[in-house]
């Protein structure tokens, strides 16, 4: 069975979100150690988006129901970064929307069943 297009969409959204968070992380660094917590939070957001993107790849390392957990974690860490003030509201909202799209892709029955079937191959 061919890979569902939602898998491609999910991985694209995850990668895009990770790159945006990476750029926000770079912009947060102000040359002093005082900003290390905010940089760390932005890095956490970036890493979680890349991890979510990884679950949408062929030969996904996790089972279908875990994909939505990882996408949800990306959204959660973005909210955490927003509450802490580690990123601007604009970028935060963009990342939250991307994360929600990833969650919706991961929640699709075709995606979860394809991943579970493909992992057993």
């Amino acid at each position: 069975m061919a890979m569902p297009k939602k898998m491609v969409a999910g991985s694209a959204v995850g990668l895009f979100g990770g790159i945006i968070a990476l750029a926000v992380m770079a912009a947060t660094w102000d040359g002093t150690l005082d900003c290390i917590v905010k940089v760390g939070l932005d890095m956490l957001v970036s890493v979680s988006f890349f991890a979510a993107a990884g679950t949408f790849m062929k030969y996904s390392p996790v089972q279908g129901s875990t994909m939505v957990v990882l996408s949800a974690l990306a959204v959660a860490f973005t909210l955490v970064a927003l509450i802490y003030g580690a990123m601007s509201i604009g970028f935060g909202l963009v990342l939250i929307v991307l994360g929600i799209v990833a969650i919706l892709c991961a929640a699709c029955p075709t995606v979860t069943s394809w991943v579970d079937a493909n992992r057993r191959v």
Partner: peptide
Amino acid sequence: YHEKKTIPTAITVVAFVV
């Protein structure tokens, strides 16, 4: 998570972590 109810799982994860 174990009943594969994805959206409620996602919302619970987000709410709990935040």
